[in-house]
């Protein structure tokens, strides 16, 4: 028996909005520690890892580890029917091939039940070791989204270079070139507006902007985004989910032929 009750149902709504266009079908894994997902896009260039820890749920019952295959587009359609202030409960009986989403209005005067068929998805998980990164960038998530959006109107790849001066996002295309430099700025009145660069050593990597733009759909989840870079390995773009966990997007770099 599985029954997960999330008072801040809007978090789950936002999570689905941020991954439904990147990944079509995925397994949600439920265990005593929490509700998680790891899935790659169809080209295996990007990977999303979600964790919602069990403590973040008002009620978390998971009798045994269970993996539920879902079509994320259909799941998003059902979650769109939940109000932003609704409590969302996810229920599944053992051995059942459906999952039920229950939406309760804050005043408990409206309760909705949506039942969705589960899918069989055989997906192995990639082992992603915790790594020391050469550069870690923490910046306002809206700022990062704006940069990716602006640069993608000029070119389709971005070179992200981190030096002690700051971080530079560069692109070039048919109409010309664009460079955006963000300097470390911790003298702000609100911490979430700071741009922090931890850079043990300089790094420069090239990525496809369309994936980064897809990742920034998670912007509503967090005021800040953490971007971890190391030469020669995928970048990690992480949005914390309010004391519950995180959503991490990994993107493989492009290299010189």
């Amino acid at each position: 028996m599985l029954e997960l009750r999330l008072v801040q149902g809007s978090l789950l709504k936002k999570v689905l909005e941020s991954i439904k266009d990147l990944v079509n079908d995925a397994n949600f894994d439920c265990s005593a520690t929490g509700f998680s997902l790891q899935a790659m896009d169809s080209s295996h260039v990007a990977l999303v890892a979600l964790l919602l820890r069990s403590e973040g749920f008002e009620h978390y019952r998971c009798d045994r580890n269970i993996s539920m295959g879902m079509n994320l587009g259909n799941m998003a359609k059902m979650l769109k029917c939940a109000g932003n202030d609704d409590i969302i409960t996810l229920k599944a009986d053992d051995g059942s091939d459906t999952v039920t989403f229950m939406f309760e209005s804050p005043t408990q005067d409206k309760i909705a039940d949506f039942e969705m068929r589960l899918m069989d998805i055989d997906s192995e998980h990639l082992g992603i070791p915790e790594a020391e990164y050469h550069a870690i960038l923490i910046m306002p998530s809206a700022e990062f989204a704006r940069i990716c959006k602006d640069l993608s109107s000029i070119g389709d790849t971005v070179v992200i270079s981190v030096t002690k001066e700051g971080v530079k996002f560069s692109t070039r295309g048919d109409i010309g070139t664009a460079n955006v430099v963000c300097r470390q700025n911790t003298t702000v009145d609100k911490p979430e507006e700071a741009t922090v660069i931890e850079m043990p050593e300089p790094v420069s990597l090239t990525f496809a902007l369309r994936y980064l733009n897809s990742f920034t759909k998670a912007t509503p989840l967090s005021n800040t985004v953490t971007i971890s870079l190391s030469s020669e390995i995928p970048v990690v773009v992480e949005y914390k989910i309010a004391e519950m966990g995180y959503i991490r997007f990994y993107l493989a770099p492009k290299i010189e032929e």
Binding site: V45, A46, L126, G127, I233, P234, I255, E256
Partner: peptide
């Protein structure tokens, strides 16, 4: 042109 790598070239299935 630059070659787009994939996640599978960095991490293996566990």
């Amino acid at each position: 042109a630059r070659e787009q790598l994939t996640m599978r070239q960095f991490y293996c299935f566990r």
